[in-house]
């Protein structure tokens, strides 16, 4: 599983780093920063899916 974060769509709602703090972080202005590159670590797949399904801006997509 891979996560794609479209920074041009992120408006800093903060849902992803609340739901998946091991995958996303907030920058100083509250915009999302993806903490991983490549594959989602084993065990974090559910959090990755949650982050995507709760983004109001549809900025996070998951690729299997």
């Amino acid at each position: 599983m891979k996560i794609i974060l479209d920074n041009s769509k992120c408006e800093g709602h903060g849902r992803c780093y609340a739901l998946a703090p091991e995958l996303f972080d907030a920058d100083d202005e509250g915009y999302s920063v993806l903490k991983i590159t490549g594959e989602v670590p084993a065990g974090s797949e559910e959090h990755a899916t949650l982050a995507s399904a709760n983004c109001p801006e549809f900025a996070i997509t998951i690729e299997d």
Binding site: G14, N54, P56
Partner: peptide, 20 residues
């Protein structure tokens, strides 16, 4: 509710500054 993309704080560049 597990999947909740609500827009209570608005959408786009004017997303509520005070949402947190």
């Amino acid at each position: 509710r597990v999947r909740n993309r609500h827009s209570a704080f608005g959408l786009g560049i004017h997303r509520c500054l005070g949402s947190n």
